[in-house]
Amino acid sequence: MKERTEILISGFGGQGIVRLGQIIGLAAIKQQYRVTMLKSHGTEQRGGYVRAQVIVSREPIDSPIVEDPDYFCAFSTPAYRRHVDMVSQGVIFYDPSSTEVDEEKVKKITHYSVAARDIAIEKLGQAIYTNSVMLGAMARKMEIFGKEILLAAMLDVVPKFKEENARAFEAGYQLIK
């Protein structure tokens, strides 16, 4: 494991951005890592700009900010544009239904297109499971976390409809090889 792993998730309010950060943070604690999770958000409860920055490390964490994400997950085009230049070696996850990516960047940086919203609607009937699908897809690539630990963290954090969320997670996990 690297000295520190940086994860950045960004999009609009109401998309479950902070929830995702919280789930990943809890998974880190379950694996006995140190973790920080900063959330930035506007005054609006829904619709405003939101960002979650997660740092995971075996050692106490000094800087809690993401400057070169190992994993960047974009849920909106503005969020993608705002942060894409920070990624040097990491990978990017995005939902094509809400995020338009830069083709020039796609040539240089690994992008995973995760049709999370479409899958959530198709398999579970509701867009509310979009972030759980995305988490499943990220679980496939975030080697520092065990799949089962991320799933358990998610089930700890979501208050209800746990079975549906678990199915969404699995659908996302199967999407990326």
Binding site: Y33, L38, P64
Partner: peptide, 9 residues
């Protein structure tokens, strides 16, 4: 705000 609102172990 990062201390009060941010999450940490």
């Amino acid at each position: 705000q990062l201390v009060t609102d941010g999450m940490e172990d």
